[in-house]
């Protein structure tokens, strides 16, 4: 299918926040994502779950152009991703950077504005104010001038979240935002994500804890190299789907219902 090739200005499924067609990714001739179709409606808080090696992070990275797919297309609000980068925010896994890097929390947050600034221009007062505001919204304002190496894991995660917030995007992708944070931080992060949703943004997070899927999210993609199921949590979070993705050992089978 060459849908993306023939009309860069033709809007494609504009009613969907994220529309992925036939996405296939392989590392060294072995497919890690196979024929993924994904339709995420706008204004949902979506989780991507699946066992280890299911390709959850790879899916996000491919959508964001960080991994080159063997085939497939990605549309954000009806346009190819490359045309609408500025409408997309990204929170990578916390462990993807060196936190001993010589910089401060507010400095990391201003990096979210480098795309808006364009070449050569330096962040000025306006940018630092926006960054401070974003830090305030994740309750980290008092740590603005702290070295990032002195922050706890949960605080580092919130700095990354603030860097995405300052991007003022429409669609947010988060890679394991709740990994290795304490319960208080987890609740704080979920409050921020719900707040984004209530402002009409679309939030898509790789999530590892099946226990909290129902409480935290309203839309779900179950992934295991292929799409196992996608849709609202109520439709999709079923024993049959989870067993299909994880194999026999799903601790939540009873909770998940008898389908």
């Amino acid at each position: 299918m060459a849908v993306g090739d023939n009309g860069n200005n033709n809007r494609h499924e504009p009613s969907l926040a994220v529309h992925v067609e036939d996405l296939t990714v392989s590392y060294r001739e072995k497919p890690v994502l196979w024929d993924i179709d994904l339709d995420v409606p706008p204004g949902v808080l979506a989780a991507i779950v699946g066992p280890n090696g299911a390709g959850k992070s790879t899916l996000i990275k491919t959508i964001l152009g960080l991994v080159r797919p063997s085939a497939g297309h990605v549309y954000i609000h009806g346009r190819p991703y490359r045309q609408v980068r500025h409408r997309v925010g990204y929170v990578p896994q916390r462990t993807s950077v060196d936190w001993d890097f010589p910089t401060t929390a507010i400095d990391v947050v201003t990096m979210g504005l480098y795309g808006h600034l364009g070449w050569i221009r330096r962040p000025g007062r306006k940018e630092y104010e926006a960054a401070r505001e974003a830090l305030r919204s994740v309750s980290m304002e008092e740590y603005a001038d702290r070295q990032i190496s002195q922050l706890s894991g949960g605080q580092q995660q919130r700095v990354f979240l603030a860097r995405a917030l300052v991007q003022d995007a429409d669609v947010y992708f988060l890679d394991e935002p709740l990994a290795g944070v304490d319960a208080v931080t987890e609740r704080a992060i979920m409050r921020i994500l719900r707040d984004l949703r209530s402002r009409g943004k679309t939030v898509i997070a790789v999530h590892h804890d099946l226990q909290t899927v129902r409480t935290y999210f309203d839309w779900l993609l179950i992934l295991n190299v292929r799409t196992v199921a996608q849709g609202t949590v109520d439709e999709v979070y079923t024993a049959r789907n989870l067993r299909a993705a994880y194999g026999g050992n799903v601790p939540l089978l009873e909770v998940a219902g008898e389908h």
Binding site: K61, L64, G65, L66, R85, H86, V88, Y90, P92, S96, V97, D98, F101, T103, V108, M111, Y114, G115, L117, W119, I120, R122, P123, R163
Partner: peptide, 22 residues
């Protein structure tokens, strides 16, 4: 000096830099 902010970002977090279109 001219490319300070770009060089700093690709040093700290090159993947994020790519999502910004650098």
């Amino acid at each position: 000096l001219l490319l300070w902010k770009e060089f700093k970002l690709i040093t700290f977090d090159p993947q994020f830099a790519r999502t910004l279109g650098l």
